[in-house]
């Protein structure tokens, strides 16, 4: 074919692969977006036959939904701050101190992802009942922390490892105490990694549904939990409106942090050392 000859076989294959990728990646998103703004959309039609903002007004005027949005953002913020407090010192320890079973402990942060989440949550729920943590704010935060510890330890730990010892030592040498060295040298140098980890943490908390559902019901309903019931109870349009709202902060955060969210920062976080 003439156009294959024109651009070369390899390039053509690359182009096709890219095209397939784009369809797979953006297709569902586009469909979601169309659905969110459609009034009526029957099967054979390629596009909605009627456009409408009905479900947007429904979602945005429903108090339960609005409060769930606020709750989600509040929880995500608190979870991010707490994991920062817990994990930054841990990450620094993993990067700098050689202690027995260091790799084992670092690896253990992955374990929470190795089991089916629901099974894990159910067994945690048993524990939470005994501790009276069911249906509490603290309980939800704890459940979210289980998922975010991994990001917050692995990525900053790699970032700390990239700070050379002689860079810290020369700061000591010019008169900075260990605490000042950490504050003025080590922490700012590891900042990109920490920001990346914070973004992941925030988003993962924002999108967490299973654990929140189990622990928070009936009083604490976050966005993803509400979305489940909306998808179950209302037409699919309502669900897609909600999905768009849920996707929005993700996109905004990633764009804001794209300076730091390089493939390199991410890959560095998951190097086994």
């Amino acid at each position: 074919m003439w156009f294959i000859k024109l651009i070369g076989k390899l390039k053509f294959t690359g182009f096709v692969c890219f095209f397939i990728f784009v369809i797979f990646f953006f297709g569902p998103l586009l469909n979601l977006l169309l659905l969110a703004f459609s009034g009526e959309w029957q099967y054979p039609d390629r596009l909605p036959s009627e456009w409408s903002l009905t479900w947007w007004t429904f979602v945005l005027q429903n108090d339960a939904i609005i409060s769930s949005i606020w709750l989600s953002f509040l929880i995500a913020t608190i979870v991010t701050l707490i994991s920062l407090l817990i994990c930054i010192p841990a990450a620094y320890a993993f990067a700098r101190i050689q202690f027995p079973l260091r790799r084992f402990f670092l690896f253990s942060f992955l374990l929470t992802n190795a089991f089916p989440k629901m099974g894990l949550y159910v067994s945690i729920a048993v524990l939470f009942y005994q501790l009276n943590l069911m249906n509490t704010f603290v309980g939800i935060v704890l459940i979210h922390l289980i998922n975010t510890l991994m990001y917050m330890t692995w990525i900053p730990s790699a970032a700390f490892e990239n700070v050379h010892r002689s860079q810290e030592e020369s700061a000591r040498d010019v008169g900075a105490s260990p605490l000042k060295v950490f504050w003025h040298i080590t922490l700012p140098m590891a900042k990109p990694g920490i920001i990346v980890a914070s973004v992941f943490t925030f988003l993962s908390s924002l999108n967490e549904a299973e654990g929140t559902f189990l622990v928070g019901i009936p009083d604490y309903r976050t966005m993803p939990v509400i979305m489940y019931s909306i998808i179950a109870d209302y037409p699919s349009t309502a669900g897609s409106v909600f999905s768009v709202i849920l996707t929005l902060p993700t996109i905004l955060l990633l764009v804001a942090a794209r300076k730091f969210v390089g493939a390199e920062s991410f890959a560095n976080g998951f190097k086994l050392k």
Binding site: S166, E169, S170, A171, R172, V174, G175, M189
Partner: peptide, 20 residues
């Protein structure tokens, strides 16, 4: 005496400067 209190200064082989 800790390094920050010593009247000495050191130049290392590499990675002396703070890149930020």
């Amino acid at each position: 005496v800790v390094p920050e209190k010593r009247p000495s200064a050191m130049v290392f082989q590499s990675y002396n400067l703070w890149p930020h």
